[in-house]
Structure formats: structure tokens, C-alpha cells
């Protein structure tokens, strides 16, 4: 007799991969319905669950490729990247990477980046909450120490960069979009900031300097180093404006100051 593990392995092979030897080994019994038809019920349910879950996370990708193409993509994806958790809501972190190598979608060069944007939106929607920055504490940092500040970013912040106009593609494929829905693919790329606010996830187009600046904070850079990177990326980068905007928007939610010379203790 099969062990439980052997039975479960055979069940997976029979449902996901149509393995007929595995199906025979399951010794399905009873009723007028053939074993292949019974296992097909599960195959349909399993793939249906994944289509539903991935369509919830990637609605624009689904809309761009259409229902039947999406179903084929999902089936290939499920084979190549098996789910590793019992929570299907978060399935699909590798979907963009998979799409980039999926030959039938090769003509849609922007598709993987649209998927990356949709994954960023999903991640932003479930990230931890954070209280706003303590402005008074920040104002108390001595001027000489300001360049050594390290800013903490909102846990929901995601930065997405593409050579394609993915924000415009995303916008015209929203269910409530009205008006012109053509996108000029040659109009250039996007640097996007995705973040959850009080009303939900927002997407904002940002400059290359600000993108470099925030990306540097995400890597734990000091304000001086981050600003140098931002200015290198965009000579006109306006530090004061960026700082004001990002504190008000609660993109920057905290800071660590260097140890004060008076205490002499390292933090």
C-alpha cells in the first residue's frame, strides 16, 4: 500500500502534470465516473484557484493578454514555480521573471515590468503600518550632524523603474478608466514610487534624482551620501523640496542620528 506521502506525491503528479502512471497508482474507486474524470475535477479546481489568485494580484497583466492566454500562462507558471505556502494570496512573486522568459509573450516587451508594478502594489497593500516622522526630534538634530542622518522609509514603499511607459499602460487598463486608451510605447520609461497611504496604495511618477535618493536610504545610506547620488543622477535635484515632500507624504517616517559627541557612545 502507498504511504500517505507517496499518495500525495502521486496526486500532485496526476493533477498538475497529467501523469497517468501516478493516477493509476492512486487506485481511485467507486461510482460511474472514471478516475481520469475525477482527478480532472481537482485539476480544474487547483488551476482555477491559481488563476483567481494571480488575476487578483495581476489584473492588468490578465487584461493585456486576455483570459485564455492568461490561463495558459498560469498553467506554465504553476509548473515552473510551485507554490511554497498555504496562503495563496501571496503566490506569484516570480511572475514578472517568468513572463520575461515566456516565449509566447515575447512581443509584449513591457509585460514583465507591468507585472513588477502590480507585485509592488500588492506588497505595498499588506506591508506594516508606521507612525509619521517626529518632526520636532528631527529639528533638534544639530546642523553639523544632519549629513549623517539615515532615514527610515515607510514599510510599504516600493520603487519600480522601467524603460517602458508602464504607469500609462497601468492607468488605461483600470476598470474605471475613461477617455483615450492608446499608449505610445515610444514615449519613454518610468521611475515610479508605490506607497500605501490612508486611502490605499498610490503610484507616483518621480524624477531620477529622487529615485536614487530614496533607493540610497533603502540601502541605509546617510543623507549626505544619498544626496550626492541624487545630484549625480539628476543635477537639478532639489534636496529641500524632496525632503519636505517626502516627510509630508510619510515616505520618510523615521531617522537615526549619529551618536552625539557629548555621549561619545556608539549606537
Amino acid at each position: 500500500m502507498q504511504s500517505l506521502r507517496e499518495l500525495q506525491r502521486a496526486f500532485r503528479a496526476a493533477t498538475l502534470f497529467g501523469d497517468s502512471a501516478a493516477l493509476a497508482s492512486l487506485d481511485l474507486v467507486g461510482g460511474s465516473l472514471q478516475p481520469a474524470a475525477r482527478i480532472a475535477v481537482y485539476r480544474n479546481n487547483i488551476l482555477g484557484n491559481y488563476r483567481k489568485a494571480l488575476a487578483a494580484t495581476y489584473p492588468v497583466v490578465r487584461r493585456l493578454v486576455g483570459e485564455s492566454f492568461f490561463a495558459a500562462v498560469v498553467e506554465h507558471f504553476v509548473h515552473d514555480y510551485p507554490s511554497t505556502r498555504g496562503d495563496v494570496n501571496r503566490y506569484g512573486s516570480e511572475f514578472a521573471m517568468f513572463l520575461a522568459s515566456y516565449a509566447p509573450a515575447r512581443d509584449l516587451a513591457y509585460l514583465p515590468d507591468v507585472a513588477r508594478l502590480e507585485w509592488a502594489i500588492d506588497q505595498a497593500s499588506i506591508a506594516a503600518d508606521a507612525p509619521p516622522l517626529d518632526i520636532d526630534a528631527l529639528a533638534g538634530v544639530p546642523a553639523a550632524a544632519q549629513g549623517l542622518l539615515r532615514f527610515a522609509l515607510h514599510p510599504s514603499l516600493q520603487l519600480v523603474v522601467s524603460v517602458h511607459p508602464i504607469l500609462r499602460i497601468w492607468q488605461v487598463n483600470q476598470p474605471d478608466h475613461v477617455g483615450e486608451d492608446r499608449v505610445d510605447l515610444s514615449e519613454g520609461g518610468d521611475a515610479l514610487l508605490v506607497q500605501r497611504g490612508r486611502g490605499g496604495v498610490c503610484i507616483e511618477r518621480i524624477g531620477e534624482g529622487e529615485r536614487a535618493w530614496l533607493a540610497a536610504f533603502a540601502e541605509n545610506a546617510t543623507l549626505a551620501d544619498a544626496t550626492a547620488l541624487a545630484t549625480a543622477a539628476e543635477p537639478g535635484f532639489d534636496l529641500a523640496a524632496a525632503l519636505r515632500h517626502r516627510v509630508v507624504a510619510q515616505t520618510i517616517v523615521g531617522f537615526r542620528a549619529p551618536p552625539s559627541p557629548a555621549s561619545g557612545k556608539p549606537t
Binding site: R12, L16, Y42, T84, V88
Partner: peptide, 13 residues
């Protein structure tokens, strides 16, 4: 059951 060898099927099997 829903997973075998660490691979989930995300269904009530």
C-alpha cells in the same frame, strides 16, 4: 491536505 514535499496545491484535497 494541501502540500507535499513543500510544494503547495492550495486546495482542500
Amino acid at each position: 491536505w494541501g502540500h507535499v514535499d513543500g510544494r503547495h496545491l492550495n486546495d482542500l484535497l
